[in-house]
Amino acid sequence: MEQARKRLATVWLALLALLALTVAGSFTVTGAASAVVSFGVAAAKVALIFWFFMQLRTEKGLIRVFAVGAIAWLAILLTLVTIDKVTR
């Protein structure tokens, strides 16, 4: 029990550290690198939230699939819109 609470606190600190990293990144890098940093950090943060806060760590495989399924579907929308936009 105590251990679980400690783990959640660690995750919380990690999230705040990632937030600091992404804010710092916004002042130092620009262009494509900036996008990589800010969205890489955001993805890491969301992964932590999903895995630890939302307890996907202990859920069954099916629930995990459902949790990320919509994200995969969103990727379809974003990818095909990008294909049109960059080749127009």
């Binding site: 294909i83 049109d84 080749t87 127009r88």
Partner: peptide, 9 residues
Amino acid sequence: GQSMYASAV
């Protein structure tokens, strides 16, 4: 007015 490459896909 979509990109023709997107249309082909």
